[in-house]
Write a protein that binds this DNA or RNA. Structure first.
Lengths: 200, 200
DNA sequence: AGCGTAACGAAACGGCAGGACCGTTTAACC
DNA sequence: GGTTAAACGGTCCTGCCGTTTCGTTACGCT
């Protein structure tokens, strides 16, 4: 557990290797999918020794988990539109755009698949969503303060309610949701919140 | 493509083998998860030749797809409570119960993972949801007819809106949703539908 | 009941993912 | 700039997944 390679000596080369491998893994994921994610192939594309990939990441799920952690760091700041519905719309649009993106959409599908197999990946996924949800929760809290939503509304629950139908559509239809779907997701979450469904 | 084993001569032995293998596969999924689904292991548990499993199902995803198709056949009839909200509650409860069940919950996780890798499995999954959603859509249509929901409401969209947060919770937290979560899912879908979000 | 063949089962085979070994490079510290 | 060991990379290899082969069983049909 201790002495994870890459943590003791995070100098120039080590960081370069990590960057190259994660980039290559993203490429493979986007164009070939999770099932064809071969660590040797990733190593070849990254122009890195196969041994290194196996030593540092160990398995496909480990690599995907690290890729997710890397993505969690570069999170976009949320917009503020002045109203809850506007903010939820912005959030829905952001999620939709993320899922529609070739690299990110493929990554999410892969991550979800990997999380059902591997506990470490599942933890990474949970942490990612906690961060994302916590980031957007304030817009709901502001809405409560402004009197747009009933007091006691569970802010995180509302944010999750926006994402849920979009991910559900991605998984059940296989294609990323379109703009009207994002609009409906925001509207639905807003309507439910106004009705007091998320009052704890 | 033609001459799929098991279709030409579906007599006693062939059917027995299919039953035993599907049962064993469900057991392995429930107790070891999708990642550890080894066809040789399944064959051993089913007391069936390894060759047979590979010949008839070919791969892990193929087996999972068949398992899903088998489950699709034994669908429970929906309840009718007399009100849209009551029916949606019943639906949410059914979904929750399904996801909480050890065998079925594990199966769904596996199917979702497999669907992201394999196109045939993805098709099987879509067909399954189409059937399930179409089965529950009438309760929404009845609600429209009774004047509980605005005319022009997309019945299937409402039904999907009930399931979405439950599946989302299963995937992002790794645990099956609880009873209050199911209640919220039904309430939220109802509130959004009343607000006219799903009017096409 | 008896025949033909679809489907099953045991064992041997092959390819490849994943790991072991060991020499080489280079980051970190003085 | 010199030293140390952390990390990289090439090569070989081993174990397992999936396949092929061929003999056996028993289902469907008349």
């Amino acid at each position: 557990m201790s002495a994870e390679p890459g943590t003791v000596r995070p100098g120039g080369r080590t960081a370069r290797v990590r960057t190259a491998v994660l980039r290559a893994a993203g490429d493979v994921l986007a164009e070939r999918g999770f099932a064809h994610l071969d660590l040797a192939d990733v190593a070849r594309r990254a122009e890195v020794g196969k041994t290194t990939v196996y030593r540092r990441w160990g398995s496909v799920t480990g690599l995907v988990a690290d890729l997710l952690a890397d993505m969690a760091e570069q999170s976009l700041p949320r917009e503020e539109t002045g109203s809850v519905l506007g903010d939820l719309r912005a959030n829905a649009s952001l999620v939709r755009w993320t899922l529609a993106d070739a690299r990110q959409g493929a990554l999410f599908r892969a991550v979800i698949a990997a999380a059902t197999c591997d506990e470490r990946t599942a933890q990474a996924l949970r942490r990612f969503y906690e961060v994302r949800v916590a980031e957007w929760a304030p817009c709901v809290e502001q809405g409560v303060a402004r009197g747009e939503l009933p007091p006691g509304t569970d802010a995180k629950a509302v944010v999750r309610a926006v994402s849920a139908p979009l991910y559900y559509e991605l998984l059940t239809t296989g294609t990323a949701p379109d703009t009207p779907a994002a609009e409906r997701a925001a509207q639905a979450a807003y309507a439910a919140a106004v009705a007091g469904v998320y009052v704890s």
